[in-house]
Write a protein that binds this DNA or RNA. Structure first.
Lengths: 352, 352
DNA sequence: AGTTTCTGCACCATCGATTGTGCAAGCGAA
DNA sequence: TTCGCTTGCACAATCGATGGTGCAGAAACT
């Protein structure tokens, strides 16, 4: 009875021990026993035995029978980033509070990997899939659709399922404006002194770049065409973009719009080894919030996407009866330099 | 045939279509068909049909039968932190390269939650569990042991299973030394000017604190008893510790040893709203690495734990036949201020 | 021709839980 | 006493894949 590594108890074991049938045991243990008119005392007996023998449901068996698993998937581009990891943290909280089990995986922004990952999750009969920042949301949709899996896009929109995304245009507008206004009237920013680094050809980048251009034009009167240096979502490519810029012009712009914290890491790589004074006059706007990024030696204005609101909205939508795909915008928030905001961790129990 | 949301094809469907038995189909699809002496041509037929009908294995069914799932679990304290999220990123790479599916979940440093989480994962018949930074590793061990689940501790050691952890003592020694040496001989640091913030009563904190004391004593000749302000792993408690300290002494210490990046966020919260000049002379050592943290306006010396080495070692150990529990130390690395290091993301394909 | 050895596959029990259905015993009413 | 209803549960099919075993027919050998 107390041997190490004993087999786990099953409903059949409890059935023998209790003298009831497996189906009765099953009903008692999964809570449907009142509906099946099982006597209270029978239920108590079985529950007692279950406790005693440390019974736990084999969720694979249940999943096989019910053809759902109780697993809820979150597919991220990458883990190693405060934006996405706070997404994971928030997501977990929601899933847990629904009594399900979160499964967080990353797919490296690779369309092929994204589809494979979705397929794997489907093979485990996950109940729902939240697709965050996918490079090819519609490709993933295809896979989910075939399997009849409820899914929703977050952060980057698709055309075939609901999407909940940051209001990138407004966010970028606010950010560009804040960067420009940061310079006083005595020495105002010139249009050719503000550059955008990062981004690629995705919806978020396009919106941000459009807002960047429009706001520059509106506030600075002009907007030279070369104001944007695409460099994907890679620190190293961004580093090279900065190096190329620097080589070419002999200096950095006075002000930068950086498309994401990942690109911001490219700026850090550029800064490493160069004198701090080189950057003392710099003003940076970054479309993402990172508490440490907010305290760099130069002013960094950041945009915090409202992760909590996005996840909440996504959970609402995913449960609703399906309608024509729609994209929901969630307003992000402008964060002044030197701000240390609370995050999902702050809701955890504090233990000193 | 092309209806939306058709049921997924099973081996039975393919069995009918191909005229072979389900077991033959199964063998062909899971690759054991040569061992079962299935004719090449039969196999090809079935593979062709599988392709045609987009067959994918129902992994819950397989898992039920084989009583393993192909899932490998990683249990983190929290997601929203560069140390743990880089752990997740690295872990994923390893699991994927073994053809299994990573499942990353967090358990909030709550012993109860840790055990529940382990139990849930066990109910899904995960194959292995990597337990990172658990508050009660031995409690989790108990649960795993009962289920015969292979598991290993990372970051915080347990006494009942192998552990792979950072060499906290050496790391803290290096860090303390680097902080002290940062001050020149003309205005050397006094013992009562260096304080440690953060940490609680766990193995890592104890080791670090011990090394902190020892190194202070060795290099500064003395070590007043009140040099340590425990504040758990919570930004807010750390904030309050700084506020209390400041209230009491009217200033911050000249030098700080901060126990983790989470505690470091407490310092950020303290900085927010206070003038930057207040911190211009500060020297900080932080036991954790965060690229943005490395570029704060004052020198921040960081310790980077070798996540890749830890995970690699853990994978080696978890596959080995079990022996008496042993703790393996992995040397961390001292990172000079203003360093932007490569991380797990840099191994991904760069797409501009 | 008779016997042994391969080939190539089918059969069937099994993993553990779920759920539609059936049915006996008990009870009240007619 | 008989009919009908309720109570309390057991039976058995099912989810999809796996793998041990057995067996017919062909090939090889004596």
């Amino acid at each position: 009875m107390d041997q190490r590594v004993k087999k786990k108890a099953t409903i059949y074991d409890l059935s023998v021990l209790s003298g009831s049938s497996p189906s009765t045991v099953s009903a008692v243990l999964n809570g449907t026993w009142r509906k099946r008119r099982i006597k209270e005392s029978t239920a108590q007996t079985i529950l007692g035995l279950a406790e005693l023998h440390q019974y736990t449901t084999n969720l694979q068996a249940r999943g096989l029978r019910r053809s759902r698993s109780g697993l809820v998937g979150l597919m991220l581009p990458v883990h190693d980033n405060r934006y996405f990891s706070s997404m994971a943290q928030t997501f977990e909280g929601h899933v847990r509070s629904r009594g399900q089990c979160p499964v967080v995986v990353s797919a490296s922004r690779d369309p092929e990997e994204e589809r494979r990952t979705a397929e794997t999750l489907i093979s485990y009969s996950i109940d729902q899939l939240f697709i965050v920042g996918a490079t090819d949301p519609d490709g993933v949709h295809e896979v989910c659709e075939l399997a009849g899996l409820r899914h929703i896009n977050i952060d980057l929109p698709g055309t075939k399922a609901h999407s909940v995304i940051s209001d990138n245009y407004q966010g970028a507008r606010m950010l560009t404006e804040a960067i420009i206004r940061r310079f006083g009237n005595d020495d105002p920013l010139r249009p050719d002194e503000l550059f955008l680094f990062g981004g690629r050809n995705d919806h978020a980048s396009r919106e941000r770049i459009a807002a960047f251009h429009a706001t520059k034009k509106a506030l600075l009167g002009a907007d030279p065409d070369d104001g944007v240096q695409s460099s994907g979502y890679s620190p190293d490519i961004t580093l090279r973009a900065f190096e190329a810029f620097y080589q070419c012009r002999g200096k950095l712009p006075r002000a930068l719009f950086i498309n994401s914290s990942i690109n911001m890491e490219g700026l850090l790589r550029f800064m490493a080894g160069r004198p701090a004074e080189m950057f003392s006059e710099l003003v940076v706007g970054c479309y993402d919030y990172d508490p440490f990024g907010s305290f760099l030696p130069f002013p960094v204005i950041m945009v915090r996407q409202n992760v909590e609101a996005m996840i909440t909205k996504a959970f609402e939508l995913i449960d609703e009866p399906p309608t024509a795909p729609h994209t929901f915008l969630i307003a992000p928030e402008l964060i002044q330099p030197r701000s240390a905001l609370k995050g999902p961790l702050d809701t955890l129990k504090d233990i000193a």
